[in-house]
Amino acid sequence: MDQTEIPKLGTSRELSETEIYALLDDLSVGVQSNLISVLQRVQDRLGYLPAQAIRQISLRTRIPLSRVYGVVSFYAQFYTTPHGRHTVRVCRGTACHVKGGEKVLNSIKRKLGIDENESTANLKYYLEAVACLGTCFLAPVMMIDHQYFGELTPKAVDTILDNYGTGK
């Protein structure tokens, strides 16, 4: 199969039927597939679950579309709209709050130009505020994907966000 047909992570444009077919072929989606794992893998590749992909998954697995949507809407991990490739989780727990967590959150919002639960226009980041990241000794703290960043200041945040994922 022609690998170039498979859409790349974080595509924001409408995907063609052929591209979705190629991706689902690549993931061998069929009647035997496990729905949740298929959804996770498709989202890993696309950053979110576009409607056409959900419809195709339903057809190939022969699981009714309503049920696929039921699963997608039940789990917080699934997104049906284009979604930033990297998720920024900012802690709003007590310790972080005392150490200026709110200021950190506000500066991230300003820097990225988005509110909580939104993605940046270039789909690089998605922003979430969470109750606690369990690393109070690093307060104020945030995570980007699986990486922790502690003892933050509004200024530090700028640099981190500029450089994240660029290899610097």
Binding site: A51, I54, I63, P64, L65, S66, R67, V68, Y69, G70, S73, F74, A76, T80
Partner: peptide, 26 residues
Amino acid sequence: GAIDYYGRGYDTRISLPQGLTRDQSC
């Protein structure tokens, strides 16, 4: 299989697939 639960917690409802009207759905 036209309808199913949709959403979670207090927001849970019975729904056609998201974004489809009844006549577009199965």
